[in-house]
Amino acid sequence: MVVKTREKDLDYILDEMVDVVENSKDEIFNISEEARSEHEQLLRELEYTKAKVLQYIEDGDKLEHNVRYSRRRLSEVSKYFDRYTEDEIREVYESTHELQTKLAVLRQEERILRTKRDELERRLQNLEHTIRRAENLANKIAVILTYLTDDFRQVNEMIEEAKEKQEFGLKIIEAQEEERKRISREIHDGPAQMLANILLRSELVDRTFREGSPEDALEEIKNVRKMVRGSLYEVRRIIYDLRPMALDDLGLIPTIKKYISTTAEYNNVKIDFKSIGEVKRLNQKYEIAFFRLAQEAIQNAIKHAEATLISVKIEICTRNLNLIIQDNGKGFDPTIKRDKSFGLMGMRERVEMFDGVMEIDSAIGKGTKIIIQVPHKRALV
């Protein structure tokens, strides 16, 4: 009875903590969204203000040129006072005074706009800092929330010692959060961006229909339909990337063939595939690893290298499993360290997990060749 009571108390405490954390997460999300909305509004206002500042500068320069000319005219009139009539003298004086007044007003308004521009830039920097802090805090809370719900209870059942529970649970959470972060980044960079573009294009369709011709509106509708089709493909691709079912049912070679066929057709790229050796089922973790490696290399060749021809070859040899991917893209210099080259970094880490090696042969303008070799003995069932 005492043990059950303690378990109930622990569950109650966990539930209360989960509620508090979830509420905090929602509040942080709302703060982040409000900051983003304000950031977008200020960004538009800043662009408008910058444009006005440039216009004021241009107008001020022209007016200043006119003032200099008027001053020279005034100096001439003052020097040869007796040559001009009273009306001409008055006109020159009044014209010069009016131009100087306009220039002073214009420069004052320009200073006000410059001050406003600087203030907007400071506010934008503060908002960006707030958004980054909110995102970091939300990520930390997501880890805590996951730990308090699913993983904490599962680890609590599997491991007896408290220290082992904590370490094992955190490793699970870190892996899950990294995968969620990757999926979130793909959705943000893919379907989310496409949907935002579709929304903008739909507004353009409405404006074109009202202000332009029906033919122009129809053309815009066709463009929107094309973007929707692309967005649907991205969603399906992300779902497929999570776990292609054919990998479990058919194995590595048929799954890669199907993936290559679909990718080549959608991207209008020629992809040659060749398998050497006996086509047999491999240990599941090796099938998953080689599929992901081929997938990442093909996507890199299409998206970054802008290749039009890609060659994929898998060799099931006596002692090794080999994967060779070659493209005719724009290539790069492997000796230069590139920021955010997460694709190649992830491929290399995945290969090293199986005690394999990965070599990259590339040069700018000469395409890229990736050779992956993994020991054979632990790979086959």
Rank of each mutant, 00 (worst) to 15 (best):
Q193H: 07
R185W: 00
N136G: 12
I173P: 01
E177K: 04
E186G: 01
L145V: 02
D189M: 08
R185S: 07
L195E: 04
E178R: 14
K140N: 13
Q100C: 03
I183W: 01
G169A: 12
L103E: 06
E174D: 13
I144P: 01
L99N: 07
Y84K: 09
N139C: 04
Q125P: 00
V105R: 12
K163H: 02
S184M: 06
K140G: 15
Y80P: 01
K165A: 15
K79H: 11
D150Q: 11
E167C: 03
I159A: 14
L199H: 07
K181G: 05
N197C: 00
L127R: 11
D189V: 01
H188G: 05
L113A: 15
V155R: 02
M158R: 14
L170F: 07
T149R: 15
L74Y: 08
E177V: 01
R122L: 12
E121G: 01
G190E: 01
I173N: 04
S95R: 09
E76F: 09
R133C: 07
T146C: 10
R90W: 08
E98H: 05
Y93N: 04
E174A: 13
T85Q: 06
L137I: 09
R180S: 08
V105N: 12
R180M: 08
L120K: 10
R111D: 05
T115E: 14
T130H: 13
M194I: 01
V77P: 02
L170N: 03
E135Y: 08
Y84F: 15
N156W: 00
T85A: 11
A142Y: 08
L124F: 05
K79Y: 11
V155Q: 03
E160A: 14
R90F: 11
V155C: 02
L199F: 08
F152A: 15
P191H: 01
E128G: 13
L195T: 02
E86V: 06
T101L: 13
Q176L: 11
E177P: 00
E135M: 08
R132L: 10
E178T: 03
S75Y: 15
I89T: 12
E186D: 06
E167A: 14
R122E: 13
M158S: 09
D189P: 00
K79T: 12
S95N: 09
T149W: 04
K140W: 06
I172N: 08
Y93W: 06
E160K: 15
R185E: 05
I112Y: 10
F152R: 12
F168D: 02
R114V: 13
